[in-house]
């Protein structure tokens, strides 16, 4: 049994312009390559089309109102032709920040427990359950929030209940699985020898976690948090159902609030003309925020594991 075809070399490559290029490609392989290339192209072109569409529809109104007045205008009144999205930007930011304040500590603590402290089998089981949370459709979160959380807040505070608080509690629960599972994976990726190292010095498990494991997993945890921010900014339905949706800058946790996404969802059904263009302008603003966030994620990810990726930078002779 030979892996070599008669007469044809098993491994024949030439190096041209720094790249190894395979010469012995079969027709079959070329077809597969083309098909995969087309699939990749589809995903990329979908993004390009969406971007082009949003900008084409949204830029005219941005130009008419003026980008600065559009972004920093505080009045959103389509009937009077006033389109300032600052209340919605403030709403999205407020809801996101409040959700992160509640969600991140719980999610990271949950990941630390599952990855470092729980008995292995329980850890795997619990993690599966946490991940199941993310399979629940967002409208269900919104519905539960609407029927339980909002009345609860109303009862406690006397306010209407549709508020920053309600939206951010719902979001905090929704982003938890994302942050937990990304953090969990990065904690699990920290080599066991680091924990042993601290234990062998007479350190406790908690000291090892605080001193070595968390710093080593930091970039992964931060990436998880950024993903969570994206989820908060992008979430529409659950927020729309509990936030009250008044287009004013929120002044307290109990103020009703409208986010960029729910603003679009609320009005797109009946908007036309300038109003419609203004909604696309809102989408441009949202798009810019999400794109900036994505760049941030890439930057954090490229920094790699805090000290995993470059363990022996000066050691030329060993390893390699």
């Amino acid at each position: 049994m030979s892996y070599r075809k008669e007469g044809s070399p098993f491994w024949r490559t030439t190096v041209s312009s720094g790249r190894v290029r395979s010469q012995g490609r079969t027709a079959n392989e070329r077809v597969v390559e083309r098909v995969l290339f087309c699939c990749a192209l589809t995903a990329v072109s979908a993004l390009a089309l969406i971007t082009a569409f949003i900008f084409a529809e949204g830029m005219p109104e941005l130009g008419r109102t003026g980008p600065a007045r559009f972004v920093f205008g505080t009045t959103w009144s389509p009937s009077r032709g006033m389109f300032g999205v600052l209340p919605m930007i403030a709403g999205s930011v407020a809801v996101t920040l409040a959700a992160l304040l509640m969600g991140v500590p719980v999610a990271v603590a949950c990941a630390v427990f599952l990855a470092e402290m729980a008995p292995p089998r329980a850890g795997v089981l619990l993690k599966a359950l946490v991940e199941l949370l993310s399979a629940v459709p967002s409208v269900v979160y919104g519905f539960v929030g609407l029927t339980t959380l909002v009345p609860l807040i109303r009862e406690w505070t006397g306010a209407p209940g549709f508020s920053v608080l309600a939206a951010s509690v719902v979001l905090a629960i929704m982003v938890m699985p994302t942050i937990t599972s990304v953090s969990y994976e990065s904690l699990k990726a920290v080599p066991g020898s680091y924990r042993d190292g601290v234990a062998a010095l007479g350190g406790t498990r908690w000291q090892a976690i605080r001193m070595v494991v968390l710093p080593a997993a930091r970039s992964g945890i931060v990436a998880g948090i950024i993903l969570g921010i994206g989820r908060c900014l992008g979430e529409t339905m659950a927020v729309l159902m509990v936030a009250g949706n008044a287009p004013v800058i929120p002044t307290s946790l109990l103020s009703p609030v409208r986010t960029l996404t729910s603003g679009i969802a609320l009005e797109m059904g009946y908007a036309s003309g300038r109003h419609r263009e203004a909604l696309f302008g809102t989408a441009v603003v949202l798009f810019a925020m999400i794109a900036a966030l994505n760049l941030l994620t890439r930057y954090v990810a490229s920094k790699g594991a805090v000290f995993g990726g470059r363990r022996r930078p000066r050691d030329g002779s060993a390893g390699a």
């Binding site: 080599p191 020898s193 680091y194 190292g197 601290v198 001193m211 070595v212 710093p215």
Partner: peptide
């Protein structure tokens, strides 16, 4: 240890 687990 085999891998020098230096603290960060």
């Amino acid at each position: 240890f085999a891998l020098p687990a230096v603290l960060p």
